[in-house]
């Protein structure tokens, strides 16, 4: 298998005056969060293991203060972890020399910030061209690339505006264009849309999906909104108090939550949009008759009406074989939620 672009190996980051007392040779001396907290230390992230695969969108989720940003900053090489290793292309990211790290940042990583982080004294064009300017590229070249990026995010015609003259959504488009200007391999987005209102947020999510379809970057995306995660993610990590509770696809999290926390977290998720036929079907196939057929990988939402309208169950097909069946009661379970079912039973 291809090696992951980025990986965490027992990564921890501690904050607090006495933090260094609990680290020797890059390893934590305790596995007990309690001990740390009693010493007045905040383990912003604690013993995190992760693999981030090439060309996929990896979403980190969690409540405020759960350590998402800290983890992202470690992955991006901004904050060194207190213990553990970050592997970038299989090499320890924090063992690169300062000059090498600068080169990695210039050419292999890009970031979009929650509050846009636009430089107020530069125009849209200047902001987008900024990373290239830092690289010392000639003016004509960088402006041409910047223009292309601006077109990519649909801001053409506003090149000479200053950030203060743009709406929030437009500002974040500038942020996106800028983060892509250096043609990074890994694209970090830290809650990029949480400062935007819901309509614009949807539009921007679509934008990211569209760009990802074109550019095929490795994406690390932070959000605390499960719906957003579902829309963009290939895989999702759920964090709580600095620790990763579970990593998996949205469906895996829904169907087999590893902890109660994950279950509670995914409770209000739009299940019909996430679950596929396979995960809700009964595997003891009756011989029929069937009201129709669905693919095992089809999302529930795509056949819900059909199922609702038919009085017969639908057959679930994989490789032209019937592997299971779905009936209307299952649809209700999804819509009302498994808990109600549990209570009923």
């Amino acid at each position: 298998m291809q090696h992951p672009v980025l990986a965490c190996r027992k990564v921890s980051r501690l904050y607090g005056a006495r933090a260094s007392e609990f680290v020797t040779d890059g390893h934590l001396t305790t596995d007990n969060v309690q001990t740390l907290q009693e010493a007045g230390i905040t383990p912003a992230i604690f013993n995190v293991d992760l693999d981030i695969e090439r060309g996929k969108t990896f979403v980190i989720m969690g409540l405020s203060g759960s350590g998402k940003s800290t983890l992202l900053r470690c992955l991006a090489g901004l904050t060194p972890p207190s213990a553990g290793k970050i592997l970038f292309e299989s090499k320890n990211l924090f063992e690169f020399s300062e000059a090498d790290l600068i080169q990695i940042h210039r050419h292999q990583m890009g970031m979009v910030f929650q509050h846009f982080a636009l430089l107020p004294h530069l125009t849209v064009l200047g902001n987008v061209a900024f990373p290239l300017e830092i690289q010392g590229r000639p003016r004509a070249e960088r402006e041409e690339i910047a223009q292309r990026m601006i077109r990519l995010v649909g801001l053409e015609g506003r090149e000479h505006r200053f950030p203060a003259q743009l709406s929030g959504g437009q500002q974040q488009r500038v942020g996106i264009a800028r983060s892509l200007a250096g043609d990074p391999d890994v694209w970090f987005l830290d809650e990029p849309f949480s400062a935007l209102d819901p309509l614009i947020r949807r539009e921007m999510q679509a934008e990211v999906i569209r760009l990802q379809g074109m550019l095929k970057k490795t994406i690390v995306f932070i959000t605390h909104d499960f719906e957003e995660a579902v829309r963009v993610a290939d895989r999702i990590a759920i964090m709580k108090d600095g620790q990763v509770e579970q990593v998996g696809t949205a469906e895996e999290l829904l169907v087999s939550p590893a902890t109660d926390y994950v279950r509670a977290f995914t409770r209000d998720a739009p299940r019909a949009h996430i679950l596929t036929a396979r995960s809700i079907m009964t595997t003891s196939p009756s011989a029929g008759p069937f009201g129709g057929e669905v693919n095992a990988t089809d999302r529930v939402i795509s056949f819900a009406r059909e199922l609702d309208a038919s009085s017969l169950p639908l057959a679930v097909i994989e490789n032209n074989e019937i592997i299971g069946a779905i009936d209307r009661t299952m649809l209700l379970d999804i819509l009302i939620g498994p808990e109600t079912q549990a209570v009923g039973a």
Partner: peptide
Amino acid sequence: SLGSMTGCT
């Protein structure tokens, strides 16, 4: 952070 991410010296 922007500075670091764009590889500013």
